[in-house]
Design a protein around this nucleic acid. Structure first.
Length: 516
RNA sequence: GGGCCGUUAGCUCAGCUGGUAGAGCAGGUGACUCUUAAUCACAAGGUCGAUGGUUCGACCCCAUCACGGCCCA
């Protein structure tokens, strides 16, 4: 039975009464009223429109893999129970062709009145696009060659009361794609695949590290002193302790305390929070992995990263190369990746020698390149700007830049005999920074001096400089073994692996202005 | 923070020089036992982002605001 909300038939009179609010309901409201009426009718007839569970025996992909080679028009006795959303339906008289989608894929349902009977056919006819359903039947291929489930019974699992986005173009509106991500996932298969890939990437990284004896740990998100990166924090307050707390901008200083404690190899995957601008490569909360390996130098960490990325890529994508929408093929399997001292890279691209050039020369070069160096108040920030402006966009294939100046690297060890250059690297691909690593500074006296330099920088106006963390110094005084550490952004790696141009397309619920 | 673009039916989009709106999909009714973005017929669906202004008249011109996108700092 079908209930409708038709407006009364109007005759030819011109003085017809104004339609009531109900009669002027929008298309969406009419659809919703119609679908709710179906639920009511089902309940009235003794049915259960919201069952507690379902019992699928297979995924769509299982059926597809098992029967891909079936000849056209051939039916099998192989029984399947599938569950998912009905995403397509074409009535064909006493036949209905429908499409069932689960996470693994989509398959056609072949529904014949002769097989499911009068009531079963009416029930399928009553399903709406988007309804969750459970169907059972046998695998077959239609005469036209479409692999299908020949349905002998079907039931509603949950009603989709609102109309779904358009079936061919999907959901295009960026505001809705990111704000109503569930709709994006339903309507845009590509988007669902991105997030499936993301999950597999994280899982593959875990496996890679666990195979190498790393322990996954959890450290505080709420920190009384934030540190480990140059960024501004989000602040919050603990009521009972009456204490200001910060959402972490990095996990670094806590993880290294665990190296002091003797855990030897640790990693943490989780959100960091930086109170900064939103762009195609920045979201205020994003997912970082940091790992620390006792007894390792930064060369060892380069080796590790160089192995990790192709291992993850081949596990997730089945290949160690990716096709970047803008930059073409990027090969992660070509070892070793170039390891270029930062000074050489900047010298080659900008003809500025960061060891010798005066700060004014750097400013001039930046100005010529169209960058206003007004905000770059320190030598370190100028070098960082030269890197960002001249070098980074040109690093398409995976590349290590090594040996960063100490003023940019307050937690990294210097080279022997050098006070200015650290055993630190950053790694780049597709013109984007992927990760940052170094041989960890473990001399407490030197670390304290670095904090003091940072304090001076802060006093001079650098609001991203590190705060003195006395407990961290105390920990180092108990002794931290020589250690290599690495941090890299999960979001950016997923961007590379999925060909997305914005972090907002690899974060399920990216930050957005609230409408509330 | 600055510049440019966008916001029209549930969704995807048209809409001319200012004369109060169209299509496809989805939804409704009907036909159809092999459809593939099914097809065919009929009927329905709109506070044109919001608020002001100009005008006899505004989706269209102007201003402000909101939200989104892209670029720049």
């Amino acid at each position: 039975m079908r209930m409708t909300t038709e407006a009364p038939q109007t005759d030819d009179q011109t003085d017809a009464p104004e339609p009531t609010a109900e009669e002027r309901a929008s298309a969406e409201q009419r659809i919703m009223a119609d679908r709710r009426a179906k639920l009511d009718a089902m309940t009235a007839a003794g049915g259960e429109p919201w069952p507690y569970s379902a019992s699928p025996t297979a995924r769509v992909e299982d059926l597809v893999l098992a029967h891909a080679n079936l000849e056209d028009g051939v039916e099998t006795e192989e029984r399947y129970v599938l569950a998912g959303r009905m995403m397509m339906r074409r009535g064909q008289g006493k036949l209905i062709f429908a499409g069932l989608m689960d996470r693994s894929g989509t398959i056609q349902l072949f529904v014949s009145k002769a097989v499911v009977g009068e009531d079963g056919f009416a029930a399928v006819d009553d399903f709406d696009l988007g309804d969750w359903i459970e169907v059972s039947g046998t695998a077959m291929k239609t005469r036209k060659g479409e692999l299908s489930l020949k349905v002998d019974s079907a039931r509603l699992l949950a009603k989709c009361i609102r109309p779904l986005p358009e079936k061919f173009h999907g959901l295009a509106d960026e505001e809705q794609r990111r704000g109503k991500r569930y709709l994006d996932l339903v309507a845009n298969r590509d988007s669902l695949d991105v997030f499936v890939t993301r999950s597999k990437v994280v899982s593959a990284i875990r496996r890679f590290l666990e195979e190498r004896d790393f322990l996954e740990v959890e450290t505080p998100v709420l920190q009384p002193i934030y540190g480990g990166a140059a960024a501004r924090p989000f602040e919050t307050h603990h009521n009972q302790l009456d204490m200001k707390l910060y959402l972490r901008i990095a996990t670094e200083l806590y993880l290294k305390r665990l190296i002091v404690g003797g855990l030897e190899r640790v990693f943490e995957i989780g959100p960091n929070f930086r109170n900064e601008g939103i762009s195609f490569k920045h979201n205020p909360e994003f997912t970082m992995i940091e790992l620390y390996q006792a007894y390792a130098d930064y060369d060892d960490i380069m080796d590790l990263f160089e192995e990790l990325v192709p291992a993850v890529a081949s596990s997730v994508l089945g290949t160690t190369s990716i096709e970047h929408p803008e930059h073409g093929e990027i090969a992660f399997g070509n070892h070793p990746w170039p390891r270029i001292p930062l000074r050489d890279a900047i010298l080659e691209r900008s003809r500025i020698d960061i060891d010798r050039a005066a700060e004014d020369e750097m400013r001039e070069a930046l100005r010529e390149a169209g960058h206003d160096p007004k905000g770059d108040t320190t030598r370190g920030k100028l070098i960082d700007a030269l890197l960002t402006k001249f070098v980074e966009p040109n690093l398409i294939q995976p590349t290590f830049l090594t040996d960063y100046p100490v003023e940019l690297s307050p937690f990294a060890r210097t080279h022997p005999g050098s006070e200015r250059t650290t055993r630190r690297f950053e790694v780049f691909a597709a013109g984007m920074e992927l990760g940052n690593a170094f041989s960890e500074l473990n001399d407490p006296a030197v670390q304290l001096a670095r904090f003091e330099e940072q304090g001076a920088a802060r006093a001079a106006g650098d609001d991203e400089a590190e705060h003195l963390d006395e407990d961290y110094i105390t920990a180092l005084e108990y002794g931290m073994p020589p250690t290599g550490g690495l941090g890299f952004g999960i979001d950016r790696l997923v961007m590379l692996f999925t060909g997305q141009k914005s972090v907002r397309d690899v974060i399920l619920f990216p930050a957005r202005r609230s409408k509330a």
